[in-house]
Design a protein around this nucleic acid. Sequence first.
DNA 1: TGCTCGATCAATAACCGTTCCTGATTTGCA
DNA 2: TGCAAATCAGGAACGGTTATTGATCGAGCA
Lengths: 153, 153
Amino acid sequence: MIEQSSNFGSVMIEALEGDIRGKFRRSGYTLTSQRKAVLDALEEVGGHPSAEDVYIAVKRKNPRVALGTVYQALSVLEEIGVISCKRWSESPARYDLNTAPHLDIRCTGCGRVSEVPGVEVGNLETEIQQNTTYKVRSARLVIEGLCPRCQRV
Amino acid sequence: MIEQSSNFGSVMIEALEGDIRGKFRRSGYTLTSQRKAVLDALEEVGGHPSAEDVYIAVKRKNPRVALGTVYQALSVLEEIGVISCKRWSESPARYDLNTAPHLDIRCTGCGRVSEVPGVEVGNLETEIQQNTTYKVRSARLVIEGLCPRCQRV
DNA sequence: TGCTCGATCAATAACCGTTCCTGATTTGCA
DNA sequence: TGCAAATCAGGAACGGTTATTGATCGAGCA
């Protein structure tokens, strides 16, 4: 039975802890145990879990947590820049502890999301800003395809 | 009262008509009056209407049409490559008579979608294909920002 | 002209991911 | 310790979309 501490059990999260606390302090939100649990679950599940995945992981340690609470926590975490949220066509949004610009690809077979290495995202936003009168808020590549496993089926 | 013919009233659609008929013939689907009406509405509304927008335009000429029918028609039209469908975060999907690769930007203020000129989309898919073991099915840029009008508010 | 059968339709229920609402609980701070 | 504000759990509601149903249409044929 892996009954770890629900507060920042892992090395990775410990390393980030100061940064996260700082972001909370600056934002005015409080770093509650539920929000810690959501961060913990994101790290534990790994990859790019959906809100549902996070909910299941959180619930395993604290069965009283509601799905709505997880959504609330995720939206706070996204707002203050601790996590990033990506939405894909015809599938639930997926959350990621990696907030730096990078490229993700989603498998249209199994829905899993993983990162594409070796492709320079660069300053896509400023590049596009030059070609439009819009005030560009975000620019990202949405890539979808079949993962190696689903290609075999 | 602009009571045009409901079947391919416009010059643009007339020009496309042969191509569209060909796609229908090859697919095995029939080009019914409802599907024509949906195409007509797409052209009449212009830009990148949502399913709801199309529904309203179709209903103006044929009040008996149901929203579900419009969704069915749109999905058939997309399937056979007559129109393209794009999904954005936190907003309904938008449909487009332009099926060639191009760049769209969506205003996070009013939700309108327009095209970004002068940016080369190029062979994004093949470029990305080289950096992943996935079988890339689609790669597109999702750009969001504030349109000039919404910037002033 | 009427018949048959498959394709398409209108209408509506159901679905899914997400947000909103409410009253209860916890927290930070004096 | 007590109080106000923030956060929570639980569940209802929402919006966009899809699935289901039985009715209708229409091409091909006798």
